[in-house]
């Protein structure tokens, strides 16, 4: 499943030889110099790699990575040839992060822009507080995905765990597999032709034809937009 990049001439940084501080300093310097691509070797679950990286640099991480990979980044293209720890691409502003394995909890938390793609499964709270980015999960997601989502798009090609879209404000969620349960104020709505086009654009590049799944679209019902006495049971019994 792990592709070895063909460009062996690409500059590489070895985590075994560098502290996180040194690694990120080197990455930032290379991005500033306009170096197009870098490989990161022996990541061994290192936390905080490629944090706050700006510019169009392409970074291939040859293994699994720890927390906050690509967090607070703005513009780079990251590819992780393994799995990722918590909060992959948190607060991402722009750019793309591709994980070939699984992503742990809180993938793309509060991400404002850009795209995070998980070819495997994603853990709990994927897309929590999402603020405009697109999160695509080819596999399944665990509980409370898109909790308090504010804007953007979450596409789950597989199954979604309990309380999907709980307390979301805005944005849209697509689920191609089984939906365990919706969270407070999330509701199903009709899927349109333009939604199908979006799904094709987002999924076909990863070898998945959305028409092979029975996608549902979830949005915010807006019933919790204002504190009202009649909503008492919703607030009291909310998950």
């Amino acid at each position: 499943m792990l592709d070895t990049p063909a460009q062996t001439s690409v500059l590489s940084l070895d985590c075994a030889q560098l502290t996180t501080r040194e690694l990120n300093q080197r990455l930032k310097a290379l991005a500033t110099e306009g170096i197009p691509a870098v490989r990161i070797l022996n990541p061994e679950g290192r936390h905080n790699v490629a944090v706050g990286l700006t510019g169009p640099i392409q970074v291939t991480i040859e293994g699994s990575i720890g927390y906050y990979c690509g967090g607070l980044a703005d513009g780079p293209t990251l590819e992780i040839l393994g799995s990722s720890g918590w909060s992959l691409g948190e607060n991402l502003m722009n750019g793309q992060i591709l994980v070939r394995g699984n992503a742990s909890a809180c993938a793309a938390a509060s991400a404002h822009g850009g795209r995070v793609i998980v070819l495997g499964n994603a853990g709990p709270r994927a897309g929590i507080s999402l603020k405009g980015a697109t999160l695509v999960v080819l596999g399944n997601v665990s509980y409370s995905a898109a909790f308090m989502m504010q804007a953007g798009r979450l596409i789950i090609a597989g199954d979604a765990g309990p309380n999907l879209g709980d307390s979301m404000y805005q944005g849209e969620i697509f689920v191609g597999g089984e939906l365990t349960s919706l969270g407070a104020d999330a509701c199903e709505t009709e899927i349109t032709d333009s939604d199908w086009q979006t799904l094709e654009q987002e999924l076909l590049p990863w070898g998945l034809d959305p028409h092979s799944r029975s996608f549902k679209k979830i949005v915010c019902a807006g019933e919790l937009y204002h504190f009202k006495a009649k909503d008492w049971s919703k607030w009291k019994d909310a998950y």
């Binding site: 905080n48 944090v51 906050y68 607070l72 918590w86 948190e90 607060n91 809180c106 308090m148």
Partner: peptide, 28 residues
Amino acid sequence: VDQRSPCRHPDWIGPDDLRIKIEELREA
């Protein structure tokens, strides 16, 4: 909208996570 903010951070939960979060902000 009557805005209700979350009480937990979206990307970390306990003090061990906080240690990594602080490192993230320092790196950034």
